[in-house]
Write a protein that binds this DNA or RNA. Structure first.
Length: 491
RNA sequence: GGCGCUAUCGUCUAGGGGUUAGGACGUGAGAUUCUCAAUCUUAAAACCCGGGUUCGAUUCCCGGUAGCGCUACCA
């Protein structure tokens, strides 16, 4: 199949070519990941190329964001980043070759004229393709007009008969009648190349062997094939990747929520988890059963590289499932060594304005690691460890189910006595408090609940005894005393 | 509108001419438990429709439908 063409036998060269007209979004990130995985799998070269020929919409800021996103994801590139804005000479030379060989011609139609004609065509009949009128201008006349400084764009002269096809590594053979292909613009009248020209010129110049990109490019691939032929260049293998959709099955966009890769970083997604999730969105390693005969979902970066093939890419679009991403992330968080996880969540506390001393955070981490899906969640789960003063809570929460304020008060008083004397490790605390429960004739559930709320300021919290051990005697006693006061104020 | 592509549980997918159509996320129930989580068990949940080929189609072919993409002097 396509993967075994002559060029593929050489060390493959692939690229990710984002346009800096926006941030690095998840679709782009997945395309980048597939290219990277493919290159790493085969020991090939992964190139980063910034397609910034749309000067109006491109910005340096976006370039920075894209690079940051790539680095965060751990997608290191071997060559580049190259900027198309710095390679204009190549495109002009390529355009000149096409003009000379008769594969391209100047077009003097203005943008306004074209728009008007398109509008008329839409209203009246059918084809809103360029009518090729400038193609009929005699060569001498065209040259004269160009010499006179008449602004002209350069268009590719597409054959009016026959068809153009290519073998896509994921979609198979794609064929389209040439009559359906417009005489597309190669060079704008200001001399800046369009995407159609610059991709081909660069892909040839950079000796790319495989073009792995979004399926939204499948329709204009024939335009590129035509240019490869006209330029006498060998065709790379095309592999189009289906699109990522939002929950409403339309193309993923801002209105679906976070689409910027960096937004996921800020949420506290672990890069490896994100990669694992993205890799499985539109690609499968095939059936890979684990020891229990179930298909595996978790793959280390190395396993992903080992298993990646273009053949595993699916043909249908995929909906981005935030819940599944959260699950992947939780899995990776739980697999992280405590010290690493501790360091990973540290910045989120800082960002929240909490002073989380590293050693204390390290002690807290094992207590919360099974309770967070995103790193950022650590703050809301564990803030009470670092708050000098507990945030206000409803004193009614101190009262256990099927109990009253008097009971809660008794429990808290008894707990305070125990905590005053017990050694402060979680084993001892648990033992002493259980004994106290027995002495009071209260079950452990109702017994521990008031203490939990008093100490943590909330009903749901990490395991009580470990938590108290980390908090320390002083803090626990003070918070319990405070809780008693609140209960009394309740009346 | 034209052209192209696609179609298995709600979602991501495995599979493939004869299967109890498998797994994962999510959802429901239960177990465990100091709460919440985590964990374990378990349940519900799918082959878009119509023809054809065939002894037999979810699988192969054709058509329809739907969705998506392209239809710029954007990329």
């Amino acid at each position: 199949m396509p993967e075994s063409t002559p060029s593929a036998a050489k060390s493959p060269r692939v690229r990710f070519a984002p346009s800096p007209t926006g941030y690095l979004h998840v679709g782009g990130a997945r395309t980048a990941l597939f290219n990277w995985l493919f290159a790493r799998h085969l020991g090939g070269t992964f190139i980063l190329r910034i397609e910034d020929t749309d000067f109006e919409r491109s910005s340096e800021e976006m370039v920075g964001g894209i690079l940051e996103g790539m680095r965060w994801l751990g997608l290191d590139w071997d060559e580049g980043p190259f900027f198309q804005s710095e390679r204009l000479a190549l495109y002009k030379a390529t355009a000149a070759r096409l003009l000379e060989s008769g594969h391209a011609y100047p077009c003097f139609c203005t943008k306004e004229e074209l728009e008007q004609r398109r509008g008329e065509a839409a209203e009246a009949g059918r084809p809103l393709m360029y009518d090729r009128r400038c193609r009929r201008i005699p060569r001498a006349e065209a040259q004269a007009r160009m010499a006179a400084g008449d602004p002209a764009a350069l268009r590719f002269a597409v054959s009016e008969s026959g068809s153009t096809s290519f073998d896509d590594a994921v979609f198979g053979r794609v064929e389209i009648a040439n009559a359906e292909i417009e005489d597309f613009v190669l060079l704008r009248s200001d001399g800046i190349p369009t995407y159609h020209l610059s991709v081909v010129a660069d892909d040839i110049d950079m000796r790319l062997t495989h073009i792995i990109r979004g399926a939204d490019h499948i329709s204009n691939t024939p335009k590129q094939v035509l240019q490869y032929r006209a330029l006498g260049a060998e065709l790379p293998v095309f592999a189009h990747v289906p699109l990522i959709l939002g929950p409403d099955k339309t193309r993923l966009s801002k209105r679906h929520g976070a689409t910027s890769v960096l937004a996921y970083k800020e949420m506290g997604i672990v890069p490896e988890a994100f990669r694992n999730f993205l890799a499985l969105l539109g690609w499968t390693p095939g059936a890979t059963k684990d020891a229990n005969g179930k298909d595996r979902e978790i793959f280390s970066p190395q396993e992903l590289i080992e298993r990646f093939t273009l053949g595993g890419i699916s043909r249908s679009n995929a909906v981005f499932d935030n819940d599944k991403l959260a699950w992947f992330n939780a899995e990776y968080i739980r697999a992280l060594p405590v010290d690493e996880l501790s360091r990973a969540i540290q910045p989120f506390f800082e960002q929240a304005g909490l002073n989380a001393a590293p050693d204390r955070l390290l002690a807290v981490t094992p207590l919360i690691r099974e309770r967070i899906r995103f790193l950022r969640d650590a703050v809301s789960v564990a803030d009470f460890f670092f708050l000098p003063e507990l945030a206000p809570y409803d004193p009614a929460d101190l009262i256990p189910q099927k109990g009253d304020a008097a009971l809660a008060l008794r429990i808290l008083q008894r707990a305070r006595e125990v905590l005053g004397t017990s050694s402060f490790d979680h084993v001892a605390l648990e033992q002493k408090l259980r004994e106290a429960a027995t002495a009071l004739g209260v079950k452990t559930g109702p017994m521990f609940q008031p203490i939990r709320v008093a100490v943590c300021g909330r009903r749901n919290a990490p395991p009580l005894f470990e938590t108290m051990a980390v908090l320390g005697r002083q803090v626990c006693l003070a918070r319990i005393r405070q809780a008693e006061e609140r209960l009394q104020s309740l009346g």
